[in-house]
Design a protein around this nucleic acid. Structure first.
Lengths: 245, 245
DNA sequence: CGGTCACTTGATCGTCTTCAATACCAGTGG
DNA sequence: CCACTGGTATTGAAGACGATCAAGTGACCG
């Protein structure tokens, strides 16, 4: 049996097990608001799916039938202008929840960067779930509030920071990605391309490349391979990100 | 009795009345999620305050002790870089709810543009209110979701649109401001200065001024006074906002 | 190998910024 | 009544940062 690589794939969860109880993403996501005893119901509500790299699994403007919860991999969210200009509004990883729009169409598209696994909930089913578990609604509000704060930070970046400062901010952010109450990582992978970074920071590929080269030349970072970064001085990077020199 | 003009002012609600029941902003705000019978409790929870033009009533980085609900006037929300660069993340008017951050400090500052009246709730009290009225929590989630969509739209503007397109987007947006299920207004006032518009659109005052002059010269808009705009062709403006020519 | 794709690097260009001068308006006081 | 002031907006000239155009490199893969 062959499988289309351009469309998301429905996965058959292991028979006889409850996928949501053992979900890797549960701790990091809003699903931890639901008690173990009710996980079976969550499982029957969710459809586990997988999207191959480059696959678009949410289309801006399409009817918003579902909510999504990323359980593995990294995806980019973006908006397009009619002439093709693209703004990536965020990169989402394990635990992220998507589709919170009140509107009846999606406000952005989502495309898998690496292999992305996610749960799909119908809007109606999630709504009934929320009615029964107000704790989950609280968590969602928390999540949305945090994203709002992040969005404002990104507006500051896009509206007022130089290319240098944008890259420094981006790298500083990536080094903290997924790290809670701990030192930021000194070495990490960038799953996205230069083009993705450019469209996230409101720059061009060339400016991203040049600026990274310059930061390396100045000894602030190292780039062992195009997809790998080492932060030489986190402090200097953070200072630079906020406009020092 | 004299009053400081640089600090918000506590207003004494008319004695014997319930200010929240008759609040002008109730329909437009999250407070409509609370039944009439419980409005008294809402009233005792809220402190009505007024901020004169130019007054900062929320300070980025300060401990986030309160939530706010705008009941009159227009305020700007903004973030600053250490060297003074400013990004205005939004203009808020009647009905807007502020302070949803989970963090314990405010993520942005707020400054009154004209005379702004608002209700202040302590975080603890609002939390208990939310526990008792899940409908209000639902409304807040709705509000936050909508703001998230707006924030993404603004990222597209800041990251990828030209100065011309930014102004067109801004004017088109302003003409819809507060208008629900109706034609956008053809003529409206701009309470904010050119500097505010510039810091909202990620431009300079000069570019804002020049671009407006050009749009007027082309017959798309008219500017009877610096604070007043007439849209000559809403359709053309909307097309321009999304990159057509 | 030849092909593709992502990234890097160089040269030139253009949009928006910066710097600067001027206009405008409301408020104040001589 | 009019000069003076401070804040805001407009307009012009010069400059810079990042974009665009273009060439070249290296990795991966059929």
């Amino acid at each position: 049996m062959t499988v289309s690589l351009t469309r998301p794939l429905v996965l058959d969860p292991h028979p006889g097990t409850d996928p949501c109880v053992h979900c890797d993403a549960r701790q990091a996501s809003v699903c931890n608001a639901i008690p173990d005893s009710e996980m079976a119901r969550l499982s029957t509500t969710a459809v586990v799916m997988e999207a191959a790299p480059g696959t678009t699994f949410i289309d801006e403007g399409e009817p918003a039938a579902s909510f999504f919860n990323i359980t593995r991999g990294t995806a980019k969210l973006f908006k397009l202008l009619p002439d093709g200009r693209r703004q990536i509004t965020g990169f989402v990883t394990v635990g992220h929840f998507l589709g919170l729009a009140v509107s009846d169409t999606y406000a952005f598209s989502a495309e898998a960067i690496d292999n992305v696994r996610y749960c799909r909930f119908s809007r109606a089913r999630l709504r009934s779930l929320l009615d029964d578990f107000p704790l989950m609604e609280k968590r969602l509000l928390e999540v949305a509030s945090n994203e709002l704060v992040a969005a404002q930070e990104q507006m500051l970046l896009l509206g007022r920071k130089t290319a240098r400062e944008r890259l420094a901010s981006f790298l500083a952010m990536q080094s903290r990605q997924g790290v809670i109450c701990q030192h930021p990582r000194e070495r990490f992978a960038l799953p996205m391309t230069r083009g993705d970074i450019a469209d996230y920071l409101g720059l061009t590929i060339e400016t991203v490349s040049r600026t990274l080269t310059k930061l390396r030349a100045e000894g602030l970072i190292d780039i062992p391979s195009p997809t790998e970064v080492i932060i030489r001085s986190q402090a200097a990077l953070e200072r630079l990100a906020d406009g020092a020199s």
